[in-house]
Design a protein around this nucleic acid. Structure first.
Lengths: 210, 210
DNA sequence: AGCGTCTGATCATCATACAATCTGGTCGCC
DNA sequence: GGCGACCAGATTGTATGATGATCAGACGCT
């Protein structure tokens, strides 16, 4: 199916199997994926809509690369949106969802203590957060942005010390939520994104420098 | 080209030439637009990515309809984003852009005084606002939401008295901007969206009732 | 009436073909 | 030798016809 192809390509791009800026030639993708050109084209169109590739007319599609300025803007938007997510969680989440958020944080802390990869657990944390907010539109918009900054996320998690710092920020979110303080939760979410953004931009700059 | 077809379809949907919920059959669109199935399919995929139509596998695509709950959520997100837009304008806009914002408001007021349609002028106002903020990512995200609520906008502008009220809210934005008060600008933008949302939801409820 | 089946409509995917466009290099001219 | 026109290859854009899959509803059987 096309969805399968699409997921494979998306994954490949996020995992840097295709370098940013690299041309994605339809014929090559055809023989690489085994599906027809029609399906490849439609998959590319969807990726373009997600912002993971950019299509230039009559020239082809290339893997999108985030400039420092774009990245900064994306983080700015995400900051505002995740602030809203935090606020909505405080306003709308059930008792069970509060508990689930706490559990998600504990899971992250446990993994981090072992030095295990923490990325999937963080995604779970955010799932709970958005779920509790009860705004699917918000969730899908953030998901759209998420794809575009995922390259940077890949970088920023490799920065030493960042996971520890990051968990502290998450704890601040949970604390504010448990205190039923919507404003504080919003600020905590905002700060978390901003901190991630700073690290991401630094990593980007370091990479461009080398 | 495909872009042409896409624009036509988008316009047709926004202008209610296709009723929400109506099935869009590929073959019909082929003979209606004169282009091939390939192009029609790709255009439909893009519209689906924008959220203007929903595609159900093996069943076809139907014109999207916004439920009251979805609309509420969309306005909630827009409120947060436009607050950011207002804040960024205060922080980043040039002197010339400040002046342009004032001019845009005056143009709206002049049109409204004559009872002329004010929608295009309002779009121009927002163009200036986002331009001055200097965050293209924000602009494109909002544009994406905009498409999905445009059906409601169509409704809410037909509510008597709304234009007048709306202009007052815009003036509040401009006042805050001229006072260089970023927080106030953010709040004013937020309030404007929320007010529009309330009217839109009322109009939606009234329509569903009849 | 209830149930399974069959049929028609429609989408999904594919293979192929051809035109339009871009890229890069070559050739001829100065 | 340098410069521009032109040509060939590559790639995308669009079109077309065919085939399989899937769904909704009609139909007939019990």
């Amino acid at each position: 199916m096309r969805a399968q192809v699409l997921d494979n390509l998306r994954q490949a791009i996020i995992e840097r199997q295709f370098a940013p800026g690299q041309r994605l030639i339809e014929r090559e993708l055809v023989e690489l994926t085994g599906v027809s050109r029609t399906s490849v084209r439609e998959a590319l169109r969807e990726l373009a809509a997600e912002g993971l590739v950019t299509a230039v007319p009559n020239k082809g599609t290339v893997v999108a690369s985030v400039s420092a300025e774009e990245a900064r803007q994306l983080y700015e938007v995400r900051s505002a949106l995740e602030a809203l997510a935090g606020r909505l969680f405080v306003q709308n989440a059930s008792q069970a969802q509060h508990a689930a958020l706490v559990r998600a944080l504990q899971r992250i802390e446990k993994l981090a203590a072992k030095g295990a990869p923490v990325l999937a657990a963080k995604d779970a944390f955010y799932d709970v957060l958005f779920e509790g907010g009860g705004n699917d539109a918000l969730r899908s918009v953030v998901a759209g942005l998420h794809a575009r900054v995922s390259l940077l996320r890949w970088l920023s998690l490799s920065v030493p010390g960042r996971p520890v710092e990051s968990i502290g920020e998450l704890r601040a979110i949970v604390d504010a939520v448990l205190a039923n303080d919507a404003d504080a939760a919003a600020r905590a979410c905002s700060r978390h994104v901003e901190a991630a953004g700073r690290v991401g931009l630094q990593a980007l700059a370091a990479q461009d420098g080398t």
